[in-house]
């Protein structure tokens, strides 16, 4: 999988309340509607600024807080190509893979706001086109690669009628 777009930088500890506030997520299952409010408490204009395929670039502990799967879904439905961070909180990480939002662990200090990036998941590398540098990606655990390749956990279950990692 390969994605190209612009970096939108955020700090450490971006929690799922910031990604999509509780005041919206309890009301609807319409993810396109939720996507309009993605990252709103950190950047009220974020949804307007994003072009399809752009990247959210966080620091450490991205996605901490509640287990709401609306968080990765709202990011995905805002047409963000992938989330890059130094580290992810574990429930968000699982939810992203389960719902097919690519999440990439890497050294995001090497990326600045607005940098043009090309993320190549299969090659395990990010090309920072603005800076002319390459950033290595920490590989996903095998189980997660399997779920991603199957098209998310729902598709995995349709295929195997349960968990199958053999």
């Amino acid at each position: 999988m390969e994605f190209s777009g612009k970096a939108h930088k955020f700090g450490n500890d971006v929690n799922t309340d910031y990604i999509i506030s509780g005041k919206y997520k309890f009301k609807t299952l319409d993810m396109k509607e939720l996507a309009r409010h993605v990252m709103e408490d950190l950047d009220p204009d974020f949804y307007e600024k994003v072009t399809a395929g752009d990247f959210i670039v966080g620091g450490a502990n991205f996605g901490c807080g509640s287990s709401r799967e609306q968080a990765p879904l709202a990011i995905k439905y805002a047409d963000v190509g992938a989330v890059l961070a130094k580290s992810f909180a574990r429930i968000f990480y699982r939810n992203a893979i389960n719902t097919g939002l690519p999440v990439v662990e890497c050294d995001t200090d090497l990326i600045d706001q607005g940098d043009e990036l090309k993320v190549d998941l299969s090659a395990g590398v990010i090309e920072n086109k603005t800076k002319g540098t390459n950033i290595p990606i920490k590989p996903l655990p095998g189980v997660m690669i399997k779920i991603l390749n199957d098209g998310g956990l729902a598709a995995h279950f349709r295929k195997y009628r349960g968990f199958n990692f053999d």
């Binding site: 287990s67 799967e69 429930i91 939810n95 389960n98 655990p141 956990l153 279950f157 349960g162 968990f163």
Partner: peptide, 20 residues
């Protein structure tokens, strides 16, 4: 432990969950 909605659905169907 806490999980998201898709993991929950997997648990409801299979009675199992994968963990590291």
């Amino acid at each position: 432990t806490g999980v998201g909605s898709t993991d929950l659905a997997g648990g409801l169907i299979s009675g199992k969950m994968w963990f590291k």
